[in-house]
Amino acid sequence: MKRLVGLGLVLAGVLYPFAVHFGLGHFAPWQFAVLLGGLWLARSVSAPRRPGNLWMAAVALTFCAVLALSDSSQLLRWYPVLVNAFMLVLFGSSLKYGPPLVERLARLREPQLPEAALSYTRRVTQVWCGFFVLNGGIAAALTLWAPLSWWTLYNGLIAYIAMGLLFAGEWLTRQQVRGRA
């Protein structure tokens, strides 16, 4: 069940810009809020108790409640900014309280990381933090000043291409770093 809810949130996040763009002619913003809030509520009930899960769900549910009460189509466009803020806090807090998030992911494949890998994973976590600041900033600027079509194009396609390029660039860099070690 929790995997299904998690998948639902991921799909909602990926398809969200297109749902907003094409759905606003058929659905009210409060209806988006109810659907999104239902997914976040299900996630908070079914997800394992990990640091961050509860506060993220509380913030997301508060966003959904404000969206439902305001019924504002402009507020709908702030959700990608919220998701980027969540990711920034998760990655950034892992830098402060450790171990860095990328190190945790790396240890899933290779539990005994060499010392050079630890500084590398820290740097990659910092790069991802920078990405979330930039991506969230662009999403916010488009929310404030751009037409819905530009917002949809960026948040529904360009942001994912940028993320994919960052993943690919990091993978290529990691291969080079490993080759030198």
Rank of each mutant, 00 (worst) to 15 (best):
L67Y: 06
P48I: 01
A42W: 15
A58R: 13
D71S: 11
V45L: 15
V102S: 02
L88C: 04
G92M: 11
V81C: 08
P100Y: 14
R43F: 15
V45M: 09
L90Y: 08
R49F: 10
Y97D: 12
R49N: 09
C64L: 04
M87H: 07
L101W: 13
L82Q: 08
P100T: 00
A42K: 11
W78A: 09
Y79W: 00
S70A: 10
F86R: 01
A60W: 05
K96P: 01
V102L: 15
R77C: 02
V66Q: 01
S73Q: 11
P51K: 10
P99S: 08
R49A: 11
V66S: 03
L61S: 07
Q74D: 10
R43Y: 15
R49Q: 07
Q74S: 02
Y79N: 06
N84E: 12
L101E: 14
A65M: 14
W78N: 05
P80R: 03
S44Y: 11
L54R: 14
C64R: 07
A68K: 06
L76S: 00
A47K: 05
M87C: 11
L90F: 15
Q74Y: 06
V83F: 01
L88Y: 00
V89K: 04
R77P: 09
L75N: 04
V59E: 05
C64Y: 04
G92R: 13
L41W: 15
P51L: 07
V59P: 03
L54P: 03
L76Q: 05
M56Q: 13
S94K: 13
N84D: 12
L69V: 11
A47H: 13
L69E: 09
Y97G: 08
F63K: 06
V89F: 00
A85Q: 01
L82C: 08
R50D: 15
P48D: 12
W55S: 03
A85I: 04
L88G: 01
L61N: 06
A85R: 05
L67R: 09
M56W: 01
P100N: 15
P99R: 08
L69R: 05
A47C: 14
S46M: 14
V81K: 01
L41T: 03
S72N: 10
L90D: 15
A85W: 02
S44I: 02
W55Q: 11
L54T: 13
L41V: 07
R50Y: 14
C64T: 01
